[in-house]
Computed example of a mutant assay.
Amino acid sequence: MSEDGRFAYEPLLDVIDGRPAGVEVLRRRDRDRTALLAPRVVWGTRQIAEFDAGIAITSVLHDPRYDSTVPLHVDICADAVVAARPRIVQLPGVLRERMDGMPIPPIVLEIGPAVSAAPAPAFAEGVAELRAAGFAIAFDGVGRGFGLDLVAELLPHSVKIDAELVARLGVDPAADAVVAAICDVARACGITVSAVGVTHRDELAALRDHGITRAQGPLLAAMQQHPGVAGLAIPVELIPRVQAAREAAPLRTVLPSVASMAKPALSLPDTVTADVVRAAFAAHPHAGSVLLTDSARRPTGFIDRNRFMMAISGPYGHALYGRRRADSLADPPRTVGPTTDLAAALEYCLADRSRAWDDLVLLDGSLCCAGVVRVDDLMQVATGMYTEADAGSVA
């Protein structure tokens, strides 16, 4: 929590490799929670929307010590998308000023159900406008506040399953059926699914059974007083050695999409210098690449760690490149869509042998960066599938 207890920061973690996939700023006081406050006051939709947008902006600016390479998740209600988006659009610029010119993190707007009203046409228009302004879009509490038809139509970057539903997994067949339906739609559309409020190991196991790879909750990481995630990871005993396949059959008839294997990109604005990229690699030793993006999060350049370090560490390398724009050392990003399957992705990797091991850049429906897909992850999944098939034929 922050010093006055008003806001807290909860990491979102990849439950396969244990690393941070984002950090969410949470409202700790009831007076800041629009859904709790609205029933007590006589407000119209616009007042509710303006209040919610104002608290969202305040929460982001409260402690701007962000890691610019980890997405920042900000909660807003659907009403604010409809009636207060001019204020929300100002958020990146205001945050950039508070960070004194340092790169700001990618911002994910976690949109919750409407408190008052959010007509579907107006909501769709608002989502499109916010996405065009460079925000990634997530739906919070999907299945409770957003129908699956709307999810398929608007194609958010990610959807979240709430804690109440998570707690019923493996106990209530109806809950498992709902989550299975959400995951099926998300998988077909290339949407990432995550879960909140994970408290027990059996909940984590149930999420993995459904193929959900991102989660947050006290079992995985405690709420923090600051937004930094350096050195944070899931306890090693909670990380599986090999990702479990969702299907029980030994051979999958439908190849998995690359969206299910995407990891957060180490992304920086395409205006940074090579020195900034070198510092980012030093702060994130596990990252194999840096993705350069424009102001709308569209990828413009790809920097492979090994090629970059060879260039900048060679004779006169720092003198030549250190203060120059990093895009002078970048390659064109190799991009794939959210519905690209495993076989197509591997074929794309092998098309250019000189870059066969470069990460693939996953794009969402607006051609913005939705993460990177590592080639070794593709190979691991492919090898696991053939191993399962061999085991099934022997049996």
Rank of each mutant, 00 (worst) to 15 (best):
V373R: 00
P235M: 01
M1C: 07
D172V: 14
R325L: 09
T383L: 13
R324Q: 14
I76V: 15
A83E: 15
R19K: 15
R324I: 11
T58C: 06
A80Y: 05
M309K: 08
M99A: 03
P106S: 06
V179N: 04
Y348A: 09
A296N: 02
D294Y: 02
D359S: 13
L150I: 15
V15I: 15
M310Y: 13
G170M: 13
V272Q: 04
V361F: 04
A188M: 13
A205W: 02
P121Y: 00
D390A: 07
V196A: 11
L232A: 11
M261T: 09
P338S: 07
P39D: 03
A296S: 03
V373F: 05
P269G: 00
R131N: 05
D32L: 10
Y316C: 04
H62V: 09
E347T: 15
A222E: 14
P299D: 02
L268T: 12
R33M: 12
L342Y: 03
V81G: 00
R241H: 13
R355P: 04
A38W: 10
A128E: 10
V127D: 02
A163C: 05
L204V: 14
P264G: 07
A326D: 09
T213P: 00
D331W: 13
R131I: 12
G93S: 00
E164D: 07
A351Q: 13
R87N: 09
R87P: 04
P173T: 13
V381W: 12
R246V: 15
D140E: 02
V361K: 03
P227Q: 03
L219A: 07
V198W: 03
A382K: 05
G288V: 15
L36V: 11
A230H: 06
G147E: 14
P20G: 03
I104T: 10
T253S: 01
T339M: 02
F302T: 12
D390H: 03
D100P: 02
G288D: 10
A389R: 14
A389Y: 13
E110G: 08
P299Y: 14
P121V: 08
